[in-house]
Design a protein around this nucleic acid. Structure first.
Lengths: 339, 339
DNA sequence: GTGAAAGCGCTAACAG
DNA sequence: CTGTTAGCGCTTTCAC
């Protein structure tokens, strides 16, 4: 290729790489560009990677590829990566820390430029130690790592306002006259759970009401079980706030099974706003997280770090908003009958 | 590393690569292995790829990462790839042929060893031409390509028995006494649609009944609309057979909206068996496709081709089975009331 | 501004 | 069975 343009390989390399400090004569560059298009030249990424020690790929590690929450994040990230000529690879750890670690290791070996962790980590010490080692190795060769959920690791983080969002929904339910509002929380090892729960508790206490927190695990069967237990406990609540999309899916099926009508018998709010909510009956009132936007922000952040020009605060919090739909209604006497 | 083991780099390379034709002295290999573990040596995949022209990665291209159908295939493929020390990358084309082509091109550039196409292709000529070029380039450097759905391209294919499965479900409904059975088909550009439709039509004609085929597109809103139109047409059917999971999700929500009770008012069967069917009410009678198994088979096939030892027929058809659940019931007089 | 040369870490070809 | 040699395709010194 360089031969056709009648320049040396070095010059061609310089001409082709826009972000190059070394100056190139515009005429020369033009000749090089012509040659590339004539030969339909495609730089060999492997050779480039051999020198730069990394490939133009970004990967998003998710817990579960079947979860719409993660899918939305991936969608945003993949779009933004594409716009920057980066490939996006989605890796699904299936909630197995060992698999996740193995993926990170393999990504490191294959020289990925950035790894986005879509979910929170574990509190387990051995896991944290191993992960730390992998991430340090990635950073050593110039790769970057970004978290898209709160984690104990002090990585650059793009995260939604978990606490504020939970407050928002709780206050919405309170405004509708509910004060016996149950909350299904997430797994204790994950910081997202605590943040959302804290927002709910805060709003309840501020209004002078007692919180009612039921354990959950962010999975669909978990949501089903938590709802069943809550209903069986006859705790006497008129509204239910579920702390993530996936559990709400399970809750919905449990409520349907028991013929609990939403919102007639029970007002239902969910933290999260996956597209599926457009199809469910009833359409759920939700805290909209800009999931795709968080994916976009994650990729931008990762690329900025790669170029050594990331000036954001370590943790950036993205605002969330309340989307009122059909699953929440003012408190009526009939609702209390459920208690 | 080779220095520590006191051997040449070539010998070390041979000792480390198990599938090497060249013999190595066991004692020498032992020394090499000791050195690698002592130095915590990790082969550089990029350098390896620079020579072999490919990386130990497999990618699965799906239409839509949010679709559980694809997620299941990916799950199987990823597991099998892992077992063979291959990384799995999931790429979501979002049903955009241009994006899909771009992905294949980037995968080629980054030297992926195998590409699994989880969905069917298009009949569009320009698309086919471009795809052919990309795939030939991948094969040129020794990469392999496998289809997991019927396609016009004559690639090695692992596919489920679409026609047989559709017959199975239709015969099941016929056995229950239904003879006015409607069928929602898939998009015409996709061969899977035609195969499933053919199975349904065959079974209906064999029983002496007229088929009733409604157009669909394999998407959730599409299923919703098709169901709505079918119901509005008052075509007088007592059973509905939906040709894929995603449309069934939409159909279910439409039926719920209209208070059509399944199976009291209408028997419902679906081709496909995503895990979600365990949570819906009612639980759907379905044609179980071994989705994960197809993913596994796809990876095995791809690896066999890479090693030049694929002896399977070009198209391998995987059997499917009928899973009877709660959504199909014997024909009763009341059902006809829907007509 | 451009070119020549070195080398990234590995594997294949060829001798021994 | 093992070592030597060459080279994958690019980028980056270092001279000019």
């Amino acid at each position: 290729m360089a031969r056709l343009a009648d320049v040396s390989a070095s010059t061609a390399s310089r001409a082709l790489n826009p972000a190059h400090s070394h100056p190139v004569n515009p005429a020369t560059r033009k000749r090089v560009l012509e040659a590339t298009s004539k030969l339909n030249y495609q730089p060999n990424l492997m050779a480039r990677g051999l020198r730069s020690r990394r490939l133009p790929t970004i990967s998003v590690i998710v817990h579960d590829i079947t979860d719409a929450y993660f899918a939305e994040i991936v969608r945003g990230a993949a779009d933004e990566a594409n716009r920057n000529s980066f490939l996006t690879f989605v890796c699904s750890s299936r909630r197995d820390p060992a698999v996740e670690l193995r993926y990170v290791e393999m990504l490191r070996l294959s020289g990925v430029s950035a790894v986005l962790f879509a979910a929170g980590g574990l509190l387990d010490r051995a896991y944290q130690r191993a992960m730390k080692k992998q991430v340090e190795a990635i950073q050593e060769y110039g790769g970057s790592v970004v978290a898209l959920a709160p984690r104990v690791e002090r990585w650059p983080t793009e995260v939604c306002d978990n606490r504020g969002g939970a407050q928002l929904m709780t206050e919405h339910l309170l405004r509708l006259g509910h004060h016996r509002i149950a909350f299904i929380t997430g797994p204790p090892q994950v910081r997202t759970s605590h943040e959302r729960e804290a927002g709910y508790v805060l709003a309840m206490k501020a209004a002078g009401h007692d919180p009612l927190v039921a354990p959950g695990d962010f999975t669909e069967p978990g949501g089903e079980q938590a709802t069943a237990r809550l209903l069986d406990s006859r705790a006497g609540f008129t509204a239910l706030f579920i702390s993530n999309d996936t559990m709400a899916l399970g809750a919905l099926s449990e409520l349907r099974k028991r013929k609990v009508e939403v919102p007639r018998d029970l007002s239902l709010g969910v933290f999260g706003d996956i597209p599926a909510w457009g199809y469910t009956t009833p359409r759920l009132t939700a805290i909209r997280i800009g999931l795709a936007e968080i994916g976009v922000a994650g990729v931008r952040r990762a690329l900025a770090i790669l170029q050594g020009q990331d000036s954001s605060p370590r943790v950036r919090v993205h605002p969330v908003s309340l989307v009122e739909r059909d699953s929440t209604a003012p408190l009526r006497r009939t609702a209390a009958a459920l208690a």
